[in-house]
């Protein structure tokens, strides 16, 4: 353990990009990191082993939620103070990790989200994604009374209290919005800072229009039920 921050990188079939993402991360970040290889069926595991990138191999594919929770459990066991989620597909800029860290170290937030919309950035998502983002902004505002400009951003850092919370319980799939509602309702403080995000370097997004609709309905339903009862 070199630092008190662990960067968690969930990876599922990312053979095209994983080497580049991790090489860039090693050069630009002072933090420890761990790749959670989520039962990949391509060469991701081989690339990680051959290059001695620190990683945990999940024997089966558990989805983003299961993979991230494994990372949080590892962070908790190893005594890390902070944990950051970083996408393996190169969308998150690893040279902005320290921005998130410096913000959370101020101590007035339990989670800091790297947002594309808190200030004007060059990011342009698809119109479907933008509709989804506006919708979830409204859902979070309605259920948790907080404003989050980029609720679907996975680029986020949490402190040890939240690491313990997530290690114990984390949504199985599409976790980003649900955890925001959950944390806000438990009076954790959430903050956003501006970050830049890139287009995917490789691989392909698993989100289809049908999955998007399912995602929106499922997250709304679960969040509403859990916030009422």
């Amino acid at each position: 353990m070199k630092s008190n921050v662990l960067v968690i990188i969930p990876a599922y079939n990312e053979e095209d990009v994983i080497f580049e993402t991790l090489s860039k991360l090693q050069c630009s970040s002072p933090f420890d990191y761990i790749v959670i290889n989520d039962g990949s069926t391509d060469r991701t595991r081989t690339i990680l082993s051959e290059n001695h990138f620190p990683h945990i191999n999940l024997p089966v594919n558990m989805g983003i939620g299961g993979a991230m929770q494994t990372g949080y459990q590892y962070a908790l066991e190893k005594g890390y103070e902070y944990a950051i989620q970083l996408d393996a597909d190169g969308q998150h800029n690893s040279d902005e990790l320290t921005l998130l860290y410096e913000e959370i170290r101020k101590g007035d937030a339990d989670m800091v989200i790297g947002s594309r919309f808190v200030e004007q950035t060059g990011y342009k998502g698809s119109s479907m994604r933008r509709i989804g983002i506006y919708y979830f902004q409204w859902v979070i505002k309605f259920l948790a009374r907080i404003k989050v400009t980029d609720p679907t951003s996975g680029y986020r850092i949490v402190n040890r209290k939240v690491i313990a919370e997530f290690a114990h319980s984390y949504p199985v799939d599409y976790p980003e919005v649900e955890v925001l509602v959950r944390l806000a309702q438990k009076n954790y403080t959430i903050k956003e800072i501006k970050v830049n995000m890139n287009a995917r370097m490789g691989g392909k997004s698993s989100i289809t229009p049908i999955k998007s609709a399912y995602y929106m309905l499922k997250v709304t339903f679960i969040s509403v039920i859990r916030s009422i009862l």
């Binding site: 990683h55 945990i56 191999n57 999940l58 024997p59 089966v60 558990m62 299961g66 929770q69 494994t70 459990q73 590892y74 066991e77 199985v172």
Partner: peptide, 13 residues
């Protein structure tokens, strides 16, 4: 089962 898979993977590491 999820917990078991996660614990096994961490212990393997």
């Amino acid at each position: 089962l999820n917990l078991l898979i996660q614990k096994t993977a961490i212990q393997h590491k």
